[in-house]
């Protein structure tokens, strides 16, 4: 019974996500609507974490297997890849480095600034340990 309940909740949320994707003319996948709905259900304590967690962990665990069939469709694009593969790979690698820099550095600057202000206000020791660089 435990798994029936969990599976029912997850599939019901998926169904609502699917319906929203169908009726709202935006390119938002059903799964993303689902994440937001399930998060809100958990956040407002409408459902308990234990009511979805074991099945949820199972589904996330087998996710790579779920994705393989669609990923294999790569072999339909060999003609395109012959010409463009280098461009794709270069784009992926270079942009990864840039995104890491932008996202990480901005967050770092904001956090260090917040810590400085905190230290100014109460010169606390607690905040300092959070920013400590790990070896």
């Amino acid at each position: 019974m435990k798994y029936i309940k969990q599976l029912s909740i997850i599939l019901l949320v998926s169904l609502i996500g699917e319906a929203l994707h169908y009726f709202i003319p935006l390119t938002i996948p059903a799964g993303v609507y689902g994440i937001i709905i399930l998060y809100l259900l958990l956040y407002f304590k409408i459902i308990k974490l234990q009511d979805v967690k074991p099945t949820g962990e199972f589904l996330i665990d087998i996710l790579p297997i779920i994705l393989i069939p669609s990923a294999v469709s790569l072999l339909n694009y060999f003609e395109l890849l012959k010409v463009k593969a280098l461009g794709y790979i270069l784009t992926a690698i270079v942009s990864t480095v840039i995104v890491m820099f932008a996202a990480g550095k901005i967050t770092d600057i904001i956090i260090l600034k917040e810590l400085k202000n905190e230290n100014k206000n109460k010169s606390g020791k607690k905040a300092k340990t959070q920013a400590k660089v790990k070896p």
Partner: peptide
């Protein structure tokens, strides 16, 4: 190949939905 593995696709949306769990935690 796809015709005999497409059933896995069925699980994609439910598995994606479950990303809410680590986020909530």
């Amino acid at each position: 190949f796809y015709n005999s593995s497409k059933y896995l696709d069925f699980l994609l949306t439910p598995a994606t939905v479950c990303f809410a769990i680590p986020l909530y935690e």
